[in-house]
Design a binder for these strands. Sequence first.
DNA 1: ATCCCGAGGG
DNA 2: CCCTCTGGAT
Length: 212
Amino acid sequence: MAKITQEVAKTIYSEISSLFPDAHCELNYDSDLHLLMAIMLSAQTTDASVNRVTKALFEKYPIVTDLANAELADIEALIKTLGLYKNKAKNLKALGIKIVNDFKGFIPSTQDDLESLPGVGRKTANVYLSEWHKIPRIAVDTHVKRVSYRLGLSLESDTPEKVEIKLMKLFPEHQWIEIHHKLIFFGRYFCKAKKPECKQCPLLKICKKPIL
DNA sequence: ATCCCGAGGG
DNA sequence: CCCTCTGGAT
């Protein structure tokens, strides 16, 4: 039973690798702080929308003390075109203050410390750790969750953390960082929520929920 | 379980 | 109009 699933995982890896050989993080950033900010802003929002506001945001707040001293209204104005912008603005400033006060101005590098920051949960911490520190993680977002369910790797009722654990058992650790990006690209551009490209999908035979 | 919450696509 | 987009806090 578990053996069969491992074979399936191998097929999935090979097929989506062919579709998206160079899947990668599509958020723009130029420092660890700015990466963390961009990931936080990307909640329930497309990366393209985030990239549209971060250029000006990063110019106004180059380092963490700038963010800690920011006027809330200024941050809000800069990210107003994003969903959930009031929460995100409040969290950004509070995150800056906490990093200055509790972490000597350095972005923390452990899961627990990252998740202690306002607006940073498991998913955001996972993305940050794998993207900046290259620590193997599989962040489960809406795309990964949907694709995993459709391909029969997880249940629809599974929490993101459960999906994450199942995927970590399925794929070897050295593939975690890239499989995360490949699943994202596959979900974003191919196995889309609304109009998935099922007719041309190389994984149609595996899929539990084909829409034809 | 519910709230937050704008842009883009269909 | 409706749904979706790399969620987190209460």
